[in-house]
Amino acid sequence: MQSFETSSPEEKLFAVRIETKNRLNLISVRDSISEKLVFLLTTASAIVIVFIFIFIVKEAAAVLQVNSINFVTTSGFDQQIINAYNAPADKPIWQFGALGLLLGTLTTTLGALLLAVPMGMSTAIVITELAPVRLRYILRIVIRLLASIPSVIYGLIGLMVVVPFIQELLISSELQIRYIDRFQLAGNSMLAGIVVLSIMIVPIITALAVDAINAVPHHYKEAALALGISHWGTILRVILPAAKSGILAGIILSVGRAVGEAIALSMVSGGIGNIPQPGDGMVFFLTPVLTLASAIVNKSEIMSVPTIEAALFACGLVLLVTCVGLSLCARLVEYLVKRGEGRA
């Protein structure tokens, strides 16, 4: 109310009108300049993504030309980096294969999703439907805070708590000796990465699912309850299906976050691009892995070597393409679901 008295739109506009009469020409020039500026900045915002593509492709070009599709189908990235580093400047080595990194990214992301989706969805259902009003409010604040915790903190806690815990609980020296030829078993592993990553994306999935569920018109819920359907039946068969497009889009976005997470994973997941072997049983999860994003962080200190720089940019390109694909996919899913429901 206060602001209405001091700066009512009508009052201001009256002043504006007087002004307009006096300085019409000057104002129209000023307006058109401002409008052009706004358009220019908007174009700049939109064109950034194009620049990102151009620059990353340009930097990665050398590696991609040499390796083409082999970059994502062969492995041995860590050794290749060492070879490239030790190569004399006049005989650079351009051979790189990032299959290990790709699989590391894939396994950690999938594992994190398997944990985080049920947890995030449950939390969202509790916040929107089951909890008493006061608790809902508190939970929403907690979730928002958790979503804004920096990844480096998750990484730090993972490194100081999760990693020693895994080492203590699951890794015996006998097991370490058995696998010493292939990799060194420590707590830093795919499992640690999965745990840290899933805790990181639970708040994201929760927040987006809460938004999606809240966007479901209240009258769907009323209709279902009036038909004698139980509260849980209503949630399961009416509310969640109606929120499907938003929930799916949210999950896809959180996949993007998981795939692109660099810092936390570079701290806890082991830092070596091993290919996890399903035949290893439990050790599959204990394999130290490296993801595309964390490889860039881990090897960034030796980026001054042009071959390594190009290899890391190639990793970045794979990431970029994946995440752009995921963004487009999220949009497509939202559109398709809505069209199926007759809302678009």
């Binding site: 908007t42 174009t43 915002s45 939109a46 064109i47 950034v48 993504i49 194009v50 620049f51 990102i52 620059f55 990353i56 340009k58 930097e59 976005l253 993007g256 976050r257 795939v259 692109g260 997470e261 660099a262 994003a293 860039i296 962080v297 980026m303 890391l312 940019f313 970045g316 990431l319 970029l320 995440c323 752009v324 995921l326 963004s327 487009l328 999220a330 949009r331």
Partner: peptide, 25 residues
């Protein structure tokens, strides 16, 4: 629509990719 799509896609680009882009440019 294209502007919106471009900005939407930019939102999904991981920060590490934006970081190396910054480094490159």
């Amino acid at each position: 629509q294209i502007f919106r799509l471009a900005i939407d896609v930019l939102a999904g680009v991981p920060t590490i990719v934006i970081a190396i882009f910054g480094l490159a440019i």
